[in-house]
């Protein structure tokens, strides 16, 4: 399914969704999408619709749960929350991203050092 670029994006989006739910508690899909947009500023251009593929994927892995409920202005909406296994996964993924970011930082910095000399 899909090519490498899409896969990376999906994985990234999955992590963002998990982190949002861990930080904000129970939320509906629109709320999660808005929250990610707000936090990332204009740097991520997200088609809000793609979030639903991520949500169903995370649900099938058992990392988040969903339940129908009422929104602030009493609209019926599906609310998602992170599970215990989801939190563990989030911790693992966060660790992985930090390490990857630091390695990438160092690798990319290497070129700059050479240039500076």
């Amino acid at each position: 399914m899909g090519d490498a670029k899409l896969d990376l994006l999906q994985g990234t989006l999955d992590l963002m969704v998990l982190q949002t739910l861990a930080a904000m508690g129970e939320m509906h899909g629109y709320g999660i999408a808005r929250r990610i947009e707000q936090v990332s500023g204009d740097e991520v251009l997200l088609n809000q619709g793609t979030i639903y593929a991520a949500l169903v994927r995370l649900q099938q892995r058992g990392w988040i749960e969903a339940e129908w409920g009422a929104s602030d202005n009493n609209r019926r909406a599906k609310f998602y929350s992170i599970t215990k296994r989801g939190r563990k996964q989030l911790a693992d993924d966060t660790e992985y991203w930090r390490r990857l970011a630091s390695v990438m930082g160092r690798v990319l910095a290497m070129g700059e050092e050479v240039e500076e000399q």
Partner: peptide, 20 residues
């Protein structure tokens, strides 16, 4: 517009949840 294509989003969700 922000949602970005209702049908595509649905199709993508179907693809990730089922057996394409």
């Amino acid at each position: 517009v922000r949602f970005g294509g209702v049908e595509q989003a649905k199709e993508r969700q179907r693809e990730s949840r089922g057996l394409p």
